[in-house]
Amino acid sequence: MPQYANIAVSILFDGLAYAMFLFITSVGLSVTMGLMNFVNLAHGAFAMIGGYVVVSLTRSYGVGFVPSLIIAAVLVALISVRFERRLYRRFYRATDLEQVLLTIGLAFMAIATFTYFYGPIPKSVPLPDWLQGSVNLGFRSFPAYRVFMIAVGAALIAVLWYGFERTNVGAMVRAAVDNRRMAESIGINVDRLFTLTFALGSGLAALGGGLAIQLLGLNPNFALLYLVLFLIVVAVGGLGSLKGTLLAALVLGIIDTGGKYLLADAGGFFIYAVTVIVLLLKPAGFYGRE
């Protein structure tokens, strides 16, 4: 294979795997902000907690990696419901600034708590053999773990798309994002809908956190370290839009990877440059409502 084609394939493939991580972790944040206008800066904390659940399960209890991911997602979704019911619910009508203060406070507390119990040393997870080697796709071999990430991402996209576009609940969510008052007046229980999507979003964040351990390592500061990245994906994609979040994750993931590969000196620059350009041209993001 010629050199440039090889490079292009590398960038596309790595970028795709990275984009899947971005998408899985950010989609919940996008829906929360779109549906309830709630700024949840503790979203990264849920991802971090998910990661630690996976670490504990695989290391201390000998549960397999894939079952651990599922358990982590379910567990964090359940925990997040309690948080939503008890704490977040009180602040839906509050100003953005109060929400920022509340959720940043939560993130701080989560970081300190997990530092206390797990220590600050980065953790890793033992992977099953079939995720460690590389997969030969005929013309080239790829790292198995990244293939796995892309597969998980693709499956989730299919499920989410079906849930959003083809089911009753999905239609209600879309209606509520578009016009909350109208949706309420025709009898949709937006509160309960929100609890549901919030739990789903947090569960997905936990899944993303678990998947990211292998990619980025895990320490308690994960809760805030990648928050800016998630916010960028949400803003570029457009609030509450599944399609937009996916497109944003793909564009940013691939451009970031390409930038690092081709122009390592200015590596960090690209993702922000793209953000600025997109937002200046389309202030509400790719698929946001103006």
Partner: peptide, 22 residues
Amino acid sequence: TIPMGSPVQVPDFTPFLQRVKD
């Protein structure tokens, strides 16, 4: 010679090392 991002955030190292591999 490849600079690999800041010490603050752990980057995804794959693109950098892919370039080394090539």
